[in-house]
Design a protein around this nucleic acid. Structure first.
Lengths: 363, 363
DNA sequence: AGGTATTTTGTAAACGTTTTCAAGTTAACT
DNA sequence: AGTTAACTTGAAAACGTTTACAAAATACCT
């Protein structure tokens, strides 16, 4: 109903400019047209306020300039950062964004495969897909342009890597974090895991183990807690860790949100961070710089990853048969205020008072 | 190119089911078709794995089942909450979401008005639009289904309210917060403003003034600081407030993110919250419950607002000529841990030590 | 200048639906 | 059984583009 309000079509433009409508189409799509006609057409477009009808274009085989983005959910800082990068880049290239949230339900798969078939989108960005096996295969088979972000193959199924990917080097950053903690003298380091299905979470854990081994330390299962990448879970896991007979002097959480839960738990236990407990996170979400104390964490270039995924996808949209690329970004430790040397380990209650007194003195 | 992969059309289904393709279309759209044919068609659809081509449908005059959502930006917790509600509701109704971010730039306007014209979306949700005057008029004129969320008319231009809206009662909640603070005995209450262009921000400020007047207090301009709804700004504003010769005993910030900045500033100034400084925020974003101390704030049902906006919009999509509705939600104070009575006001340095000592004793 | 290669232009045929119109069928009422 | 009303069905015409094809125009050689 409201749609026929937009009644100015390519034919109207053609009539107004005194050319055939095919010529108008060519002008719009930047194909070779003589200068004078091009000018006339442009003028007519301006005058009539013509805008292309995407449905028609899509139906006729053209591009919609719409990219689909599939995310597990909204309201997650990590995802939002990547999304921001995607959005920025898309805007630069004049593409629109169609957002699909899966809510981590497997049956959503049908939904977007369907969405593709509809031919509404030119390409698809998959952010941390949970059950990618089924549909990635189909996307590849159809040479449908797509890029997978931050999905590390967790099983050795080689098919999974056959799609273009953008990722971060989780192993390396996590190793850096662990070494930092170890160099500070920590020997009992707790670890709070991430979502088990996620490759990135697993990689971070592998680095935890590896670092301990590198330093000739044995792995104490008590120091390893489950987690879901969520604050509450981080809080509970930290409480469990801290109530151990021989509690850790440092905790490395698989993501920042969990770390913030650890910070909470430390407060509840009246522990001073970093004096009594050192904490390291992973992701470097914006909030990490604003906690108290500010979180020492492993930075991944989230926004950058989103942007890169877009430009990669756009290349595939232009040439779908192009060779499959994998881009990965370095991660690195950002030292802020949640870690301290493990040496001066004293009774925590004591140290609180000491610190306060010292503040009182200096002021 | 990849698109013709989806080659099974309505005609194939028709042939397979032994009916005309018009009949297939009718089955899909739920129009009256005899039971046996309907069954045959359904079976054929299943067998061939047919899915409707949205471009074609849209071109032929049908609905795309896509709703456009216009947000100022991503990565803002407030916006994300509303977005989450929108997304949830949209999924329930089987609609897809097309996301536009304006980055608060006025020239983006052209962009989405254009998007509408393309006929790609059935309706538009406008979240906190900054410069709505120009395009709202056009949307209304075309009877294009749309709903404005949380845009309170800031000037008395009556046109602006002629579009359907979903909003929260900012006045009331802010009043409640101020009364709470006043009842606690606070008489010097600082206020950190929000984005000046936003009606909601202004309303909260009006309540601040009104509450003071109701209690017979004069308004001290020194206690009123500018802000942009952002953490850093909240931090700086709070610092300014706290370094006043006669600093406030409580600060009311126009949103939670600012309040978190205030919390930071309090820490920097070695002030105990709530003992030395009471803080109230606005929005009740998820993070508010996880700060330390947990933030006392005014709750608005953000997710709910998003959901409501969707169901309202869907009604307009069904019947565009329907009477304009305005829905508003109550807001209410959530008391957590950042406010205390103003009576026991002592030297802040002193009180810190006292508290620590008392903790030491009880344990 | 004559011929050939290249570029520009117009015509018409898709693309896959929805929907109007008229014909065909069934049901409902005397 | 006959008439009318209601419903079901199929054919065909949109919807607004892109693009293959052919024709026309132009440029480039020798």
């Amino acid at each position: 109903m409201s749609k026929q309000a937009t009644n100015v079509t390519i034919k109207d433009v053609a009539k107004c400019a005194g050319v055939s409508y095919a010529t108008v189409s060519r002008v719009i799509n930047g194909q070779s047209v003589s200068e004078d006609k091009k000018a006339r057409v442009m003028q007519a477009i301006d005058k009539l306020g013509y805008v292309v009808n995407m449905s028609a274009r899509s139906l006729a085989g053209g591009n919609t300039h719409i990219v689909g983005v599939l995310v597990p959910n909204l309201g997650n800082e990590y995802i939002n950062q990547v999304l921001q990068g995607i959005d920025e880049a898309l805007r630069e290239y004049n593409y629109d964004l169609m957002l699909y949230t899966t809510q981590q339900r497997e049956d959503k798969e049908a939904r977007y495969v369907q969405a593709l078939s509809r031919g509404m989108i030119d390409g698809l960005l998959l952010l941390v897909p949970f059950h990618p096996e089924a549909y990635l295969k189909s996307l590849r088979a159809r040479h449908f342009p797509h890029v997978v972000i931050d999905q590390v193959v967790i099983d050795q199924n080689e098919h999974a890597s056959a799609s273009p990917t953008v990722a971060a080097r989780n192993r390396q950053g996590a190793l850096e974090a662990m070494r930092y903690l170890l160099e500070l003298g920590h020997r009992r380091i707790g670890f709070i895991k991430g979502l088990a299905q996620l490759g990135s979470a697993h990689e971070r854990f592998l680095s935890y183990e590896q670092a301990l081994q590198d330093y000739g330390l044995s792995i104490d299962e008590d120091l390893i807690q489950e987690g879901h990448f969520e604050q509450r879970q981080g809080f509970l896991a930290a409480q469990a860790l801290l109530s151990l007979p021989n509690p850790p002097t440092a905790i490395f959480a698989a993501n920042d949100v969990s770390s913030i839960g650890v910070l909470q738990a430390a407060r509840h236990a009246d522990l001073r961070v970093p004096k009594d407990l050192s904490i390291v996170g992973f992701d470097d979400i914006p909030r990490a710089a604003h906690t108290y104390p500010a979180l020492t964490t492993v930075h991944q270039p989230l926004v950058e990853m989103g942007r890169t995924a877009v430009s990669l996808l756009l290349r595939y949209i232009e040439r779908p048969e192009q060779a499959v690329q994998h881009i990965s970004f370095d991660t690195h430790l950002i030292v802020r205020d949640t870690c301290a040397s493990a040496n001066n380990k004293t009774d925590s209650r004591q140290s609180v008072v000491e610190e306060v007194v010292s503040i009182a003195k200096t002021s």
